[in-house]
Computed example of a mutant assay.
Amino acid sequence: MRVFFIKGVLHLLALLPLPRVHAIATRLGKIIFQQNQLRITQVTRTNIQLCFPQLSPVEQDKLIKQSLIETCKTVTELGAVWLWSYPQVLKQIQVVSNEIYLQQAVQTGQGVILLTPHLGAWEIAGLYVSAHYPLTALYRPPKLIGLDNFIHQARERAGGCFVPTNQKGIRTVYQALHRGQVVGILPDQVPNEAAAGIFSPFFGVPAYTMMLVFRLVQKTGALVLFTYAERLSRGSGFHLHFRQAPAMINSAQVEISVRALNQGVEQCVQTCPSQYQWNYKRFKRHPDGEKSKSFY
């Protein structure tokens, strides 16, 4: 029943133009901001307070409110992102900056690791790359199994290959890099396995961070870039960014490489901080094993 309902809502949202969808999300986000007892509001508030202690309480509230609005946009725009034809979706990208970094990296034949943080419309970034480059991307299957095929087909309709974050999927990623192709990874997902990450600062807060990128670079010599799709105002479309990763992400020391990965995510987030998914429990694991402040 839940799967049927979700699909129905997405199909209804797909009937609306993007400005209308974002307007609905803005109203919804403002309502959620007023509901302090909601988990999404609590986690967003805690994470922003942890990561931006330099902001005044008024400034933090402003960022929290805007973040909740942007989170609602992430959800409501999925109708368009997953159900419109992919050429129609890509027409919403108004600006593409520094794609030359990706083009040059692909031409080396070394393989490219394209890191896409939970920032802006990351689904659109994946769709764009799928349509223009040979892409293999890791994804975490949804908790509702009935949605897996639906989401999988939507993500692959532009030609990309999306594989789950298991051993088979990781083997597929290694194979793609050895072929000189592009691999997409969400670098700010908290690893499920105890030996899959280490703690490294993220906005000055210890965050359990994946070591997968470090291992891929060391074993394949792949080049690393960042990308994200920033939402433009009033539902007018998206600005797709490509950025070079911090040089130390290539370090042979895992602590240095992982720290550089988080620094790269931070640099992306700083360009449009309200569009980061601050409702994600990024600090749900704590170095001393205690329950994290943002894990309710």
Rank of each mutant, 00 (worst) to 15 (best):
G126R: 08
S251G: 09
Q275N: 04
V182Y: 05
K291H: 12
L138G: 06
L102F: 10
K281T: 09
Q181F: 10
F33A: 08
Q103N: 14
F238Q: 05
L138K: 03
L50V: 08
R2K: 13
W84G: 00
R155N: 02
H178R: 15
G109Y: 07
K91C: 11
E156L: 10
D148I: 08
L216R: 04
Q153Y: 05
F150M: 00
G109Q: 02
Q189A: 07
T271D: 05
G146H: 03
A131H: 12
K143T: 09
V95K: 15
L63T: 09
G289R: 05
I64Y: 09
H152W: 11
R215A: 08
L135M: 09
F5T: 03
V258W: 11
L55K: 15
V213P: 04
I256F: 15
T136W: 09
A196C: 03
F202T: 06
Q275H: 07
F150T: 00
P134G: 07
R157T: 01
Q34S: 11
N47S: 11
I6V: 08
P273C: 05
M210A: 07
L212E: 04
Q167Y: 10
L55F: 13
K284N: 13
K62G: 12
T271E: 07
T116W: 09
V106T: 08
G180M: 04
Q37E: 06
H286F: 12
P141L: 02
E266D: 01
I198K: 06
R215K: 14
A154M: 01
N98A: 13
E290S: 15
V75H: 06
H178N: 13
A252N: 14
Q244N: 14
V112R: 07
K91A: 12
G237C: 08
G29I: 01
K73I: 01
G197H: 03
V224L: 04
M248L: 15
S56K: 04
P87L: 04
T76L: 09
V106E: 04
Q104F: 09
C161Y: 15
T71S: 13
T71I: 12
E77T: 01
A176W: 11
A25W: 00
F4L: 11
M211Q: 14
Q181I: 04
I48R: 10
L240N: 07
R259D: 12
G289I: 06
L114M: 05
I145M: 11
I93W: 09
H11P: 02
L38P: 01
Q110G: 14
V173N: 02
R282L: 05
I198P: 04
G204C: 04
A25E: 00
P187N: 01
L177D: 02
N262Y: 12
H241D: 06
T165V: 07
Q167M: 13
P201R: 05
